[in-house]
Design a protein around this nucleic acid. Sequence first.
DNA 1: AAATTAAATGTAACGGATTACATAAGACTT
DNA 2: AAGTCTTATGTAATCCGTTACATTTAATTT
Lengths: 332, 332
Amino acid sequence: MPTIQEVAKKAGVSVATVSRVLNDNGPVSSNTRKKVQAVIDELNYQPNLLGRNLRRSETRMILVLLQNISNPFYSKIVKGMEDTAHENGYNVLICNTNTDIDLESIYLDFLKNKLVDGVIFTCTAMVTAEFNKLAKNYPVVLCNEYNKDIKAPIVTIDNEIAGYEATSHLIKLGHKKIGMISVNNVGSSYDRMKGYMRAIEEAGLEVNDDYIVYHTFSYKGGMRGIKQLFELDDPPTAVFCISDLIAVGAIKELKSKGLRVPNDVAIVGFDNNSIAPMYDPSITTIAQPRYDIGKKTMEIMLQRIKGSGNNNYIVKLEHDLIIRESTLPSID
Amino acid sequence: MPTIQEVAKKAGVSVATVSRVLNDNGPVSSNTRKKVQAVIDELNYQPNLLGRNLRRSETRMILVLLQNISNPFYSKIVKGMEDTAHENGYNVLICNTNTDIDLESIYLDFLKNKLVDGVIFTCTAMVTAEFNKLAKNYPVVLCNEYNKDIKAPIVTIDNEIAGYEATSHLIKLGHKKIGMISVNNVGSSYDRMKGYMRAIEEAGLEVNDDYIVYHTFSYKGGMRGIKQLFELDDPPTAVFCISDLIAVGAIKELKSKGLRVPNDVAIVGFDNNSIAPMYDPSITTIAQPRYDIGKKTMEIMLQRIKGSGNNNYIVKLEHDLIIRESTLPSID
DNA sequence: AAATTAAATGTAACGGATTACATAAGACTT
DNA sequence: AAGTCTTATGTAATCCGTTACATTTAATTT
């Protein structure tokens, strides 16, 4: 692995000249340029980025923290981030945190230790105060997750309205007993629940606390949610699930109970996961503009790195209700 | 962001001493150690990793290239890699290549430019000759994908035997007309097909070329595959799909044709994707030891970095046939 | 032809750590 | 008390680029 010194020596010029050729800044006569380029090609020289990054004290790398790469929801978001980053000469690195606070803090050291120029969170295990301190000192953006006290740029959809629309859709189909399978302690699901409640109240119905159950953000969570709801004396006829994965679990559990979807129970999911159209029945859901969310998040990140923009705002993008088989008007 | 110089100055010692405290190598009196540590804590000093990495010329980072993070198949593999890496003081970075050769080559520059110590491929768009050249000069390991001419450590399962077992399972259920939905130009699927053929021949049946169709590695590929197979005059009664995603598409398409799985057509998938148990019917499949594949791959990577091991071997781990509803003996 | 300006190239400091080597101080022999 | 051996600490080179500044060379002006 040759260094810039060796290239310079072999080409009979100074390292400064080689650097000028490499970065195409500063004047170089076309003769020397050719000569230097020839040596670069011959030695197959590639500048050591550790040296360069150290000198420039920037790496043009953005770290994206995912709870779990396997969550297909994030793939398009990441694509949006990547495209925007690449357009601007940045690269995206992805790390799995598994909601492990220790792991998360290792990855944050990458930021503090200058290995990456910024970090995008799609989830965090940190307490808010600590997070805010981090956000004050380093370029940090939150994508699709938040709570009220966080002081950092946030990109998301309007979850309250989305919850409202999902629930209103069920109400319009004639349902009066609408359950909800949610998860605890997540800002977005809290807002979805507020929308759910508002829809019910505005329709002149009453919110039944027994109809709101909390489980994990997973297939199994959906199965348990249905079990809990159907142990009630008067179970709901429609269920709004906080995610498509939960909806899949819910449907699977309903089927195993001999109940048909949508004929006996209607189901709405959330996220427009890749499973949603594939499942049987295909699942009515709220589609988030994932690519645009990623794109916008990265744009804000790049602004923050350049030092512009402040630390205290939220960007809400448009979502869509996609109606599929799981809420078709009953065919019976 | 304080530097080691500032810490040294404030503590009234040399940078060498601070470095000794930081890395806990070399002798330091407990007095100075305490003094230095106090300053480190006070300034909240963190060593700049660009400086350190440059000096050490290692980064203790391993880059894992995924075609697409959303493929849930890889999440457990990555987990295995991560755990092994962390145990050894390494970190894992993930990048999406989208089978884009240009993007891939940017990420490979991370390796050539010393930003990462090694690269694990789970797919590659490179031509074999180029790949082999890379593998000769840098620590590179292939995970779960290969072709015969590649000269690099490879970790995988025995796809020929897996294909044989999947097909034999269908034969044992009494099927005589067995189709296969495969993809082109992938080493692993070629081997699975060889196993499929061997099973058919050993059972005294005949391989029907019309029963082997090639489509994309996706849900849609499965739908198209079924369409093609069921345009035949004498369509198969069972289909071996090269992946669970394909199997899902196949089942969805069969259902829309009014055919029942497994009653009318039996389906076997591959990978034991997270959808496989969730789908309706749940899908019989070949489970790969994903965590162990990841673990083994990383172990080999770390050996390669330390300079041991050669470049020309293949590690095959054990797989399992998991029988689920999609191949239950017909209940009619 | 001398003076001024512009272009091309070089020298050396710098970014932030690690570490070989040198030196100083203290402990231990004899 | 002089000499030897540890232990503790410091000095400065080093990793590999970038770039401000200095210097040389060429082009232009008067």
